[in-house]
C-alpha cells in the first residue's frame, strides 16, 4: 500500500508543473491569443525563482520572483502582439528562444548550487494516516494550489460574467468589439495571467521537483503544456486529466528504466510525451471537437478607426 502511495505522489509531482502552465495557456487561448512562448517563460521562471530563492534564502520570494519573471516576459509578448499586432506564432516562438537564452544567462552563476526543496505540508494526525495520509494531506503547497487553480479556471470560464466576456472575445473579437467589450484589456490580462502561471510552473521545477538549476531543465514541458491545451479541447478538467496522465507515464517509464526491460532509454524517455498526446488525440477525435477551438485563436485584432 505504501508503495502505491509513493508512486502516486511522484505521479502528482511530475504532473503539477504541466497542469499549472497548461491552465494559464488555456485561459490565454480562450481569449483568442496563441502564446507559444510557454517553454521560454517557464525557463525564465525556473532560473529567476532559483536565483531569488538562493540569494534571499526565502523560497516564498523565489516563487514570487518566478511569477514576476513570467509576467514580465509575457508583457513583452502582449506589447508586440496586441500593441503592434505582430504575428502571434512568430512572436511566441521568438519568446521561447529569448526565454531559454535569458534563463541560461540568469542561472549561469547558480549551476551546481543546490538547496533544500520546498517541504511538503504536514498536518499532524492526518498526514500520518496509513495508506492515503501523505497522498491527501502531505503534498507540497503547489499541488493544492494547482488543483485549486483548475477549479477556479473551470468556475471562471463557465460561471462568471468576466469568463463569459473572455470566451466571447476569444470566439469572435470583431463581434465582441461591436458589442462594446474591451478586447485589448481582456487579452492583456489573460496573457499576463498565462505568463504568471508559466513562471510559477518554472519555479516548481527548480524549487520543488529538482531543487537546483541547470540550463534547459524545462525539457520541453512548455510544449507539452501547449499540446495538452489543444488536445484537451480547451477544457480545464481535461487538461487536469492530461497532465496527470503525463505524470503517470513519466513515473512509469522511470520504473521501467530501473527494471531494465531492454528498451533504449531514449525510447523510454519519449514514452510520456507520446502516451499523453496519443491519449488526448483519441479523446478529442471522433467527436468533431475541433469546434471547441476559440474562433479567433491566433489572429490579431485591429479595430477600424
Amino acid at each position: 500500500m505504501d508503495i502505491w502511495q509513493a508512486v502516486l505522489i511522484t505521479v502528482i509531482t511530475a504532473a503539477t508543473p504541466l497542469l499549472i502552465a497548461a491552465l494559464g495557456e488555456l485561459v490565454v487561448e480562450r481569449a483568442g491569443v496563441l502564446n507559444l512562448g510557454i517553454e521560454g517563460m517557464m525557463a525564465v521562471g525556473a532560473a529567476c525563482g532559483f536565483a531569488a530563492a538562493t540569494l534571499s534564502g526565502s523560497s516564498a520570494l523565489g516563487v514570487l520572483a518566478a511569477i514576476a519573471a513570467g509576467v514580465a516576459l509575457s508583457a513583452v509578448f502582449a506589447l508586440l502582439t496586441l500593441g503592434l499586432a505582430t504575428n502571434q506564432v512568430a512572436t511566441g516562438l521568438a519568446l521561447t528562444i529569448v526565454g531559454l537564452g535569458l534563463s541560461g544567462l540568469i542561472g549561469a552563476g547558480f549551476v551546481g548550487t543546490s538547496r533544500e526543496a520546498i517541504p511538503a505540508i504536514r498536518i499532524p494526525g492526518l498526514t500520518e494516516l496509513p495508506g492515503v495520509g501523505r497522498l491527501l494531506f502531505g503534498q507540497d503547497p503547489f499541488v493544492y494550489l494547482s488543483l485549486a487553480l483548475a477549479i477556479a479556471v473551470l468556475w471562471f470560464l463557465g460561471r462568471s460574467r468576466a469568463g463569459l466576456t473572455l470566451r466571447s472575445i476569444g470566439e469572435n473579437h470583431t463581434s465582441a468589439h461591436w458589442l462594446g467589450l474591451p478586447v485589448m484589456q481582456v487579452r492583456l490580462l489573460a496573457i499576463l495571467f498565462g505568463g504568471g502561471c508559466a513562471g510559477l510552473a518554472g519555479a516548481y521545477l527548480s524549487l520543488v521537483y529538482t531543487p537546483f538549476w541547470s540550463p534547459g531543465m524545462t525539457a520541453g514541458r512548455g510544449w507539452i503544456a501547449l499540446a495538452l491545451v489543444v488536445f484537451a479541447s480547451w477544457k480545464p478538467l481535461r487538461v487536469l486529466f492530461g497532465a496527470y496522465l503525463f505524470g503517470g507515464a513519466t513515473v512509469l517509464q522511470l520504473h521501467a528504466q530501473a527494471a531494465s526491460l531492454g528498451f533504449p532509454s531514449q525510447v523510454m524517455s519519449a514514452f510520456p510525451y507520446v502516451a499523453t498526446i496519443v491519449a488526448l488525440v483519441i479523446m478529442s477525435a471522433g467527436r468533431r471537437k475541433a469546434a471547441a477551438a476559440p474562433g479567433s485563436l491566433g489572429t490579431s485584432f485591429v479595430p477600424d478607426r
Partner: peptide, 10 residues
C-alpha cells in the same frame, strides 16, 4: 448587424 455579431460556440 448584417453579418451577425454572434458567437457560434456559445
Amino acid at each position: 448587424f448584417q453579418h451577425f455579431s454572434l458567437f457560434d460556440n456559445l
